[in-house]
Simulated scan of single mutants.
Amino acid sequence: MRQPRMTALLATLMFASLLATAQAAVASPSPKAQSALDKAEVLEQVIAPDVEATPPDAPITPGEAQAVDPAGQAALEDPLTCLARALYWEAKGTPETEKAGVASVVMNRLAHPEFPNTICEVITAGSEQGPCQFSWWCDGRADDVVEEDAYEIAKEIARQALNQALPDQTGGALYFHDRSVQPDWAAVFPLTAETDIFLFYRPSGGAAR
């Protein structure tokens, strides 16, 4: 009776070892991904108004950006993942120009002294003290990616935004909304730009609401 038990024990230990190895591989980013994460953190600090930082020697490359969070299931803990996931969900199913507009709003907020000085904080603002600034964050649904191709596009736009290589076609907007809704502030803030899906605004004098 001892041999079957020993075999079962060995099988259990082997499975546990393989599981630990797989989890470690998932938790440890590849060299390309780590390079993108390191650069993104510095680039975020370069844009934030109350942080002094020297830009990295080279921008985030497309390959580096795509190596980050390939499954779209990583925790929202770094600038690139937070921005890409926000573009994916906030402008899901829309053309690249719409996602670029949302990215510009996030980056404009990052650069504004009255908003948080990290991308993740910009995106998750309001989740504890009031309505979320970005609706997908508090809709009660899972935030994991379900369309790989769309997420790759979102990561590429996020890469360009962090590299400050994405033209801002929103007129410096700090707010936006889908055409299907009409928030109360839309009647007060000046309209700066519009697309087929979104309307963009910036308060008079640039003050945040």
Rank of each mutant, 00 (worst) to 15 (best):
130 G>A: 06
209 R>Q: 11
177 H>P: 04
100 A>E: 15
1 M>W: 09
109 R>H: 08
154 A>Y: 08
148 E>F: 08
194 E>F: 06
168 D>K: 05
78 D>Y: 01
99 K>A: 14
82 C>A: 15
30 S>H: 03
62 P>H: 04
85 R>Y: 03
165 A>T: 11
136 W>D: 11
83 L>R: 09
129 Q>H: 12
8 A>K: 08
167 P>R: 01
134 F>R: 07
47 I>M: 12
81 T>C: 06
125 A>S: 14
111 A>D: 05
118 T>N: 03
45 Q>D: 14
110 L>K: 01
153 I>D: 09
108 N>C: 06
182 Q>D: 15
123 I>L: 10
142 A>C: 12
114 E>S: 14
14 M>Y: 06
69 D>F: 10
137 W>Y: 15
201 Y>G: 05
116 P>V: 06
29 P>D: 04
9 L>S: 11
110 L>G: 01
17 S>V: 12
89 W>I: 03
4 P>M: 01
180 S>K: 13
93 G>T: 03
155 K>I: 04
41 E>S: 14
103 A>H: 07
120 C>S: 07
8 A>M: 10
148 E>N: 08
104 S>V: 05
107 M>Q: 11
135 S>E: 15
169 Q>I: 08
139 D>L: 08
79 P>K: 08
202 R>N: 02
180 S>Q: 13
130 G>W: 06
85 R>N: 09
7 T>K: 10
21 T>L: 14
28 S>R: 15
199 L>G: 00
70 P>A: 09
104 S>R: 08
204 S>D: 15
89 W>N: 05
74 A>K: 01
37 L>G: 00
138 C>Y: 07
158 A>C: 09
15 F>Y: 12
197 I>T: 15
96 E>G: 00
96 E>P: 00
97 T>Q: 14
19 L>C: 13
64 E>C: 05
84 A>Y: 07
80 L>I: 09
208 A>R: 11
145 V>L: 08
100 A>P: 04
15 F>N: 04
110 L>Y: 05
62 P>E: 02
157 I>K: 02
94 T>H: 12
11 A>Y: 00
